[in-house]
Design a protein around this nucleic acid. Structure first.
Lengths: 211, 211
DNA sequence: CACCAATCTGAACGACGTCAAGATCAATCT
DNA sequence: AGATTGATCTTGACGTCGTTCAGATTGGTG
């Protein structure tokens, strides 16, 4: 099962190269970061020639799309878990938001790929709103449940977008070193996250100071 | 051999190449987008050899830093203008937020460079919090003024970060095509922005539906 | 078994970031 | 003034990248 770069007696035809390439890409992301993620490096990691990927992906972008799709699935699972772990209904969104940002911190390179390849197309990432368990739909349905039936659909949608913007913004900014001292003052990374989210409309389970 | 490809026959020594390179980079960003922004293209645009920039910038990243710095100055001015245009104190943050996102929509390529080169270093962008007129400080000081003297400094800081996350997230997501129909339903781009911001804690000048 | 389509290789092209060596020029020091 | 120095710019090169294409290899189908 372990198909490392040292596959001496690999047959001419790989068998499942498409999947192997996506996994090789993720391995590179985890170990060397996004800047090291070249098509050639992925092919090298998978033990294959630089041209081989083109039989499974139109170009580099399409490979990254596949990697991102895996990431969105992982994030969806992560958020679903947080939703189920939430104690009461009021803290639902907070727990989901925290798990979102924590995922981005545990897989920073993957998270970056997830968004970069969608920004290039000005489209929501494929895999972000595919099925009911997908990340975006999870948030929207949670809002729908919390809000009740008398809230207009437009407002559900706007609230979902607003929550997403806040979480995504925090995900991208929470790694900046300038916030380190503030994190220490608040007692750790998670306290910082909850502190920031607490100042935003839909994450107010723990009543922050009114600003 | 004096004839350059460009109209002006410049002397061997340019005189102010550093500034010319930054402006060339911005020109390329506006006309061809971020993917076309290579060091060689910038040098070409400035009518200079590919190695010339290395006498003014350590590497490509340092050139992008300079471009980003200009962008942050522009954004700071934009937000200051919006702050002064705000009618009452309650709508201050909303107007600033709208102007932030609108800037990102008017200069999408520049905005992207502004953040990308800071994400690479896990540091807040240089030029974002340099002086009192800089974008970040503007928001924080506005919060301090609105909140009054009885609110703790930590909460001011958290609110600033929260607002920034929301605005940045919206800036990156507002261009996604999936929101087009919602924008039309709400009556335009700006109504969409105000609708989303209205669902977030500190932008609640126009009382959105409670979700 | 023969053939086809899918898969993989090898070599190549242009573009990129970067560097070292040399050319050119402005300013300063005799 | 003329010589020297240091900054600036060019030329040419290296290795890497994304991508393409002709040819080698293979599994599956008739």
């Amino acid at each position: 099962m372990r198909d490392a770069a040292v596959a001496e007696s690999r047959p001419y035809h790989h068998g499942d190269l498409r999947r192997a390439l996506v996994e090789a890409a993720r391995r590179i992301l985890e170990s060397e970061g996004p800047t090291a993620l070249s098509l050639r490096a992925v092919a090298r990691e998978a033990g294959v020639s630089p041209a081989a990927p083109y039989h499974h992906f139109k170009d580099k972008g399409e490979l990254l799309d596949a990697v991102a799709h895996v990431g969105w699935d992982m994030l969806g699972e992560s958020m679903t878990g947080a939703k189920q772990r939430a104690a009461d209904l009021a803290s639902l969104m907070t727990e989901i938001g925290v798990s979102y940002v924590q995922f981005s911190q545990q897989h920073p390179a993957l998270y970056r790929v997830m968004y970069d390849c969608s920004r290039d197309k000005d489209e929501l990432p494929e895999g972000m709103q595919d099925n009911e368990d997908s990340a975006y739909c999870l948030v929207r349905e949670t809002f729908r449940k919390v809000a009740g039936p008398d809230v207009e659909i437009v407002d559900i949608e706007l609230a979902t977008i607003a929550a997403w913007c806040a979480a995504h913004g925090l995900a991208e900014m929470s790694t900046f070193k300038q916030f380190d001292s503030l994190k220490i003052a608040l007692g750790g990374e998670e306290a910082f996250l909850r502190g920031v989210l607490g100042h935003l409309g839909m994450f107010q389970a723990n009543k922050p100071a009114k600003v």
